[in-house]
Design a protein around this nucleic acid. Structure first.
Lengths: 228, 228
DNA sequence: GCGCGGCCTTGATGCACATCAAGCTTGCGC
DNA sequence: GCGCAAGCTTGATGTGCATCAAGGCCGCGC
């Protein structure tokens, strides 16, 4: 991409690169380029051959699947600083397992699988960092599968709201929904109508107060107690 | 464990150990012991501190979560030769994220996290093998989340039946359900009643023939075509 | 200004699956 | 043999969420 100085500096703080030494990091730059995209632009389709994975610099990206009848489920919403599709590195026939598309225009780093993989061989610490990430991803999936099978929509919405509350916060908190309600519904695997209704019920019960995309939670603990 | 000769021989064929050299494999044995368990016996609970992961030698183990009202969702059913809970290796506060219990009595190898982790540092190939496994697990989770959100019970049951058909097989196949129908239902996140009814419908449509736990599929392709 | 499309809400209706309940079969202990 | 429990099936009923439909609000282009 030409201007490699700040790129190297930027990469230093991401777990995929932080454990590499300067030589390695310099070497990897030849396998990296940037790409910008618009809102709604398709980045890759499910089952496309996957030569690269990505690091999002700014904007928002959705990873999603589509059912036979066109319904869409967002598997993950990517925000600035997050990497995605790393796992294609460890497939022997790398293909993207989901669709990827822009939600808000932005720019991403495209990292070539083969080059990075070679680098991995030399850095156990980076290997370990990748595995830590994958483990966290697996945990998240289990939580989601649990929520989908063992819990109802009220639980899922409440759980989501609580996930927006800063760690360790108690008492009264105001959170801001990080995206349009439609997108949130698609993540929680409910319809926008249901999301709207659940928020209504919660606010009728005095557990939350909805003001546009700002949600005031008078008491985090009592919300947590009444998830079911 | 004393009798280490066959143990070393047994381990050689498992991906967690196959890339290690003899010295390493010998060294790891001091971090491994066996444990036998009965049907229904609890092996570990969700949130227990997790010093070890496991390799199942024989019997069947279920990994599951339980909802507030006692409903049980089987996250994974482990069979002889499979390892599980490896991912606790990469948590900084290792705790089991699910319950584990015997389904059919058997015996498992208990592998200490710390010892194995040290070994990993020395073998990129093993690292890579672990990452490949984790990647496959992640794929499977995405498929499951998709099935839970985008597909109905008929699809899930059909998909499950087709997963029992040997790779590349076409035409007429007979598969045997690998466990009691209750357990299968708990994996597919449906009730035994619904499973029973779906099988009934499929067999009324001539797509399958049910004979106890043996299921004859006259034509794999037409079953695949009529999943929805 | 006005019209239009996207997003959100609210209500009426529908449907897939769960729940509840009863009956059947099989295996096991006595 | 009998009684009993576990697993499976089938039918009747219930319910949570989706679907369908309509209306309000807001931003944008004309």
């Amino acid at each position: 991409m030409g201007d490699n100085g700040w790129l190297a500096r930027e990469l230093r703080h991401h777990y995929l690169f932080s454990a590499l030494n300067e030589t390695q990091r310099a070497r990897i730059l030849s396998h990296v380029f940037t790409r910008s995209f618009g809102a709604g632009e398709l980045l890759f389709s499910r089952n496309d051959p996957a030569p690269s994975f990505f690091l999002l610099r700014n904007g928002v990206v959705k990873l999603y699947r589509v059912s036979a009848d066109g319904q869409e489920k967002i598997m993950r919403l990517i925000r600035a600083g997050q990497s995605f599709a790393e796992s294609i590195m460890f497939m022997d026939q790398p293909h993207y397992p989901v669709h990827g598309a822009g939600v808000e225009a932005g720019e991403l780093l495209v990292i070539e699988r083969s080059g990075y993989l070679e680098m991995l061989r030399e850095s156990f610490d980076t290997c370990r960092a990748v595995m830590v990430q994958m483990t966290q991803r697996i945990q998240a999936h289990w939580d989601e599968i649990e929520a989908l099978t063992l819990q109802n929509s009220r639980y899922r919405v409440t759980h989501y709201l609580l996930s927006l509350v800063p760690e360790g916060q108690r008492g009264t908190v105001t959170v801001t929904l990080p995206s349009r309600k439609m997108l949130i519904a698609a993540q929680l695997a409910i319809t926008p109508e249901t999301l709207s209704r659940v928020l209504r019920v919660l606010s009728d019960e005095g557990l939350i107060e909805v003001q546009e995309e700002n949600i005031r939670i008078p008491d985090v603990d009592s919300l947590r107690k009444r998830m079911h």
